[in-house]
Design a protein around this nucleic acid. Sequence first.
DNA 1: CTAGTTGCAAAGAGTTTGCATGGCG
DNA 2: CGCCATGCAAACTCTTTGCAACTAG
Lengths: 138, 138
Amino acid sequence: MITVLKLEYKTKQQDLILEFLKNSAQKHFTALELAEHFKTVGIGKATVYRQLEKLVDSGAVNKFFTGENAAACFEFVGNSHNENGCFHCRCELCGTLIHLHCEEIASVKEHIEKTHGFEINPFRTVFYGICSDCRNKK
Amino acid sequence: MITVLKLEYKTKQQDLILEFLKNSAQKHFTALELAEHFKTVGIGKATVYRQLEKLVDSGAVNKFFTGENAAACFEFVGNSHNENGCFHCRCELCGTLIHLHCEEIASVKEHIEKTHGFEINPFRTVFYGICSDCRNKK
DNA sequence: CTAGTTGCAAAGAGTTTGCATGGCG
DNA sequence: CGCCATGCAAACTCTTTGCAACTAG
């Protein structure tokens, strides 16, 4: 259960990116959004991509695809791979991404694992559908 | 239960693409793979993209992201919109697509709808994870 | 000092768009 | 005939790579 964030080589760029994501837990950003944000500090686009890759490998950051525009999203998950797993819901109309922490879903994860032999990866799985806001608008 | 694939304008390119996907049910292709395949018949890349979009809108074809390389995948799902909703599980290792008909999952769909106000679209939603075969191999 | 990192710009992969031509209804 | 679809190429978006300068260990 111990995640070793073995980032042997430390650079200030790496620190800045990790800190920013850590302080924005539960929020997600595309690589380009991050690149844009760090441009002011003088961190180049390529560095953002390269550091994100390392952070994902280290387990500190989660990478997932929303399917919206083929742009990957990144978000801090830390060393605490919480067993419940946090699922994402993406609204097909307005694009909002909703984080779902729910016992009932965690139990389905378990059900599928035991009964169907399929081990769900909550970090990659995204539920598509219509959010309550958009439903009400209709 | 009848899905009307209302494709008012019919072209032979559209027919070719739909037929090909229908005859390859359970298989998935990227847009570029399809474009490559139809290049020999004289169908342009842009047409493949544009027709795929329409077929997805019509419900005949499902579009999903493997997350592997940010390339979208397409596969025939037909008019069989069974009300239970058939969920897909995609193995991250071997790429197998598993069709899941299960009461328990249908109930979660309902739960999320009622409790979280989010209306899941079973056709777009794909569970990512590791299938039993690949788990056993490890 | 050595090896990994940075930033820039250029290259790549996947997808979308503009526009003139062609085909369905 | 009018309108949408087609095909080509160019444009666009997201991501990766080459390379010289730089920096952590």
